[in-house]
Design a protein around this nucleic acid. Sequence first.
DNA 1: CACAGTCCAAAAGTATGACGATTTGGTTTC
DNA 2: GAAACCAAATCGTCATACTTTTGGACTGTG
Lengths: 231, 231
Amino acid sequence: MEIQGLPGRLLDELGPAIAAGEIPEGAVLRSEDLEERFGVSRTVVREAVRILEGMRMVASRRRVGITVQPKSGWDVFDPLVIRWRLAGADRPAQLRSLGSLRVAVEPAAAALAAVHASDDDRRELSALAVELTVSARAADLATFLRHDIAFHATVLKASGNEMFAHLGDTVGAVLTGRTEYHLMPHQPEPYAIRLHREVADAICSGDAVHAEQAMRTIVTGALEELNQQLG
Amino acid sequence: MEIQGLPGRLLDELGPAIAAGEIPEGAVLRSEDLEERFGVSRTVVREAVRILEGMRMVASRRRVGITVQPKSGWDVFDPLVIRWRLAGADRPAQLRSLGSLRVAVEPAAAALAAVHASDDDRRELSALAVELTVSARAADLATFLRHDIAFHATVLKASGNEMFAHLGDTVGAVLTGRTEYHLMPHQPEPYAIRLHREVADAICSGDAVHAEQAMRTIVTGALEELNQQLG
DNA sequence: CACAGTCCAAAAGTATGACGATTTGGTTTC
DNA sequence: GAAACCAAATCGTCATACTTTTGGACTGTG
């Protein structure tokens, strides 16, 4: 997942700093400064900058330097950008954006999954729904989170749409971020758990309408809760 | 939009070739070969490869080389990846994926736009709906396409959700690709045009339910038509 | 024959010096 | 005051040398 080597280390410094606004839009960096500041060679700086450029977070111009681009141009779907924004000052906005995206995508994915899921997918969903119930009842938030992430990722994958499938990690990041955010709220609501079972059952029995509906209830509920938390 | 310089040129060669499967999954490239083949220096090859690595299309390992990663890992939301796939053998699959994504996202965006759109957004939507009607009636497919793209991009932007907004270009690519694909079908259907006006009107009057519904009709219609075309 | 440990060479990773290209901003000139 | 010009700054590219990792061959042993 990570970019490796020295350029990766540079990215881990620059990316979050830019995402958090510590290095603000319009700021100009110079390669040579970066070389000194991080004690690496031009090669390394250039490659790291190239990657940031690929994410449209910076642009490099002769005689000018490396300028931080406006947020509106960033590749907001890039997993690294999402992670960096979730880690910094943009966290609330990022969670809101992702919440809306979930509301749009996950019900559709559930409906598709009811039609396209493989037998393995269906089995896994059933199993996860059960484990979800167990860990919720045991108030074991850590494993609950793990299963919750797996559940949603599996639905997205089972939809058969590669683009939906790729949102699995992103949704995972949201759930993790959310859990950290309201600092482990107590026990997951029994109603939400029941809805997850409903989704699993509906997908297993090929009931697209019901799967979509139940999933929509889950994600809109999550979004409302989020908006409440964030004020 | 483009990556510039020699690395950009390299990308324009390698990216499409990988996306089209000409360089298949698992294939191994060596930096030195690429240097010779394209007549560029190490620096340039490395930076281009770094960018591809950022898109998760290749992975570079010591003593092994640069290996093409399985498609399932690619950053399928990266605009360049989308463009490359649309240009090559993956075009049908890519259009289908994007079609489903549109069905999920655009109705939600329309609903949000009805609530959050600025006055400017609403004005622009009205204007675009009119121009859409005009160019459709004149059977001017080129300008129709332009306005259609602008219309959908504006709705996405007006939703106030940055992630939705960023799908504007992507949707534009779909519409362009679709138009090229069935080779300019004849005249756009009057019913679809009317739906666009309905979306605009609903957003202008703040009617989220109606906006969502009309938009859903548009995109599901487009998806069905697409599936019909692709068999 | 099977297995484990050792060693080597191949390839990417990093560093560095030199030069080229381009943009900017000031300076000169008319 | 405006236009043309020049010079400095900075990225872009190249060539080269050195470092690090690691896959696989080789070797020896049980």
